[in-house]
Each structure stands twice: as structure tokens, then as C-alpha cells.
Amino acid sequence: MKSPKFSIDPLRHRDRLAIRPAFKAARRARSSAFRIAHLFRVRDDGCDTLQRLATCCYAMPSRDIKPERERGDTPADLGASLSSRAVRVDRGKSRVARDANPGVGRRRKRAGHGGRWRRTEWRRGCEHRRPGLGPSPPRYGLAGLPLLAIKTGLPAKFQESIMLPPGALKYLRGHRDGLVFVSVASVAASLIYVGQAVAGIALLTITLGLYHLRTSRFEEHQTELQRLKVDQEAMKVEVIKARHRDLLLYEQPNLPLVNAPQRPSKLRRER
């Protein structure tokens, strides 16, 4: 049987390496729980985001499994073949890697960078995961929901068109609200694109409403922080005045301030 790795390989080598974690995540996602968890862990540094997200979605096992004779030309099959190849290359000392670059493993072993060092470095920071998967990628939380909706609840025609701008997730890293907004807005735009205008407009409206609520809450939080700063400055004024109150009560306001803390106040004397 001819290996599919050279026959169906539309991606460049750099892109294949960059999307490798996504493929691995998809490979592990056999159950629905794993599928949801790994949708939230899509990496964002590397090749084109849209391509990687789409491929990650397609690589997952679909609900409507096609007959055996139709397999081999779908994106899911492409993802599965690429993921299996990526895992084999990733092991470093496997047969595929030695064939691709002969002598690399042996030279490293002779130079002192043996297998133990490599394994420990590889596993650092990912003890909770299977060794060989690398460090855990960042989570995107609710940003994975549109992708989940694409795979589970929307028609097949819509799955072919994901209108997320390339690199959008990369620029929105760290801004979770903006990320959710852009993702849901892209789903809405895709819905309009495939003919579901009412659903698209409704989703866009709901997204804008949620964005409005979250942003308003953030702005209120910022205002409250600034108000606390003002209160802090006002308290400094109170501290300055408090140092002179006792002196003014004793009608000796020109006493040096160094004596002020040693003098018992009137209230303290009454106690």
C-alpha cells in the first residue's frame, strides 16, 4: 500500500511542523470530552491560524462517517495521515527520522547529548501529559465554542467555510473577550455567507450585546480602580491633618512635629 504522506500533502513542511500539536490533539480526541478539551488548546504561534484551525477541526473524527470506499480524499483522512506521520517524526529516533536525516541521532549520542537528557528536557513542564507531546499550549477558553458549534451543530455546507481572518487569534492573544467576539462574529459572517442570514444576524446581535456587557463591566472596573486611587490620595490628606490636630487642640500648633507622636492625645488620655 502506498503511503499517503507524499501523495496528499498540500501543506508546506514548515506548516506541517507548526500544526503538529493540533494534529496530535486531534488524534487523541477520540471521545467527545477530549475533543472539547483540545479544541480549547489550539496553538496560535506558527503558521496560518485559519489553516490550522480548519485542519484541526477536519482532523477530528466526524459524526457522519463515510463508507470505506470514499475514504482517502477527505480532510479528516488527510489530517489523520499527517498526524500519524508527525508523531513518527517527532520521536526523533524512529525509523522515519533516521531515514530523513541519517546520522543525526548517533552524532548526538556520541557528543554527550544522550537520550536521558533529551527525554528529561522534552518532558519538562508537561508531566501531566503523555511524554512526547511537548509543553501545554495556552488555552483560549470560550473561543473554542464556535469551533465546537462548527463541528457539532451546523450543516456540512457551513463546515466548508470558516471566515476567520488569518492571524486574528494571534493578534488577540491575551484578550479573551475580543477573542470570543471575533470568533463568534466570524461564525456569524460564515452563516450569512452560506445563506443563513437570520441566524447570522441573530448571532451577531447576541455577540454585540455580550461584548457590550463585558466591556461595560471592564470600564466600570477601571473607573472603580481610579476612584480608589483618588480615595487613597484623600486619605493622605487626612494623615497630614491628623498629625496637627492634637497640636491645635492643645493650642500649640508651632511645636516641632517630631514630638507629636510622643504626646498622648486628648482621646487617649480620657481612656
Binding site: 444576524i201 441573530a202 446581535t205
Partner: peptide, 27 residues
């Protein structure tokens, strides 16, 4: 439906702009 959605969106956006101005001024 599209017209209603567009009107709601316009209202929400107007509200957002107004809230942005007021909160920024207060800050």
C-alpha cells in the same frame, strides 16, 4: 428579521459608544 437585527445592533452600538464616552470622561 434582518431589519430587526440591524436595528437592535445599531441600538446596541450606539449604547456602547455612549457608555465608552461617559466612562472615559469620568475616568
Amino acid at each position: 428579521a434582518v431589519l430587526a437585527g440591524a436595528l437592535i445592533t445599531f441600538g446596541l452600538w450606539t449604547q456602547r459608544v455612549r457608555r465608552f464616552d461617559s466612562s472615559g470622561r469620568r475616568r
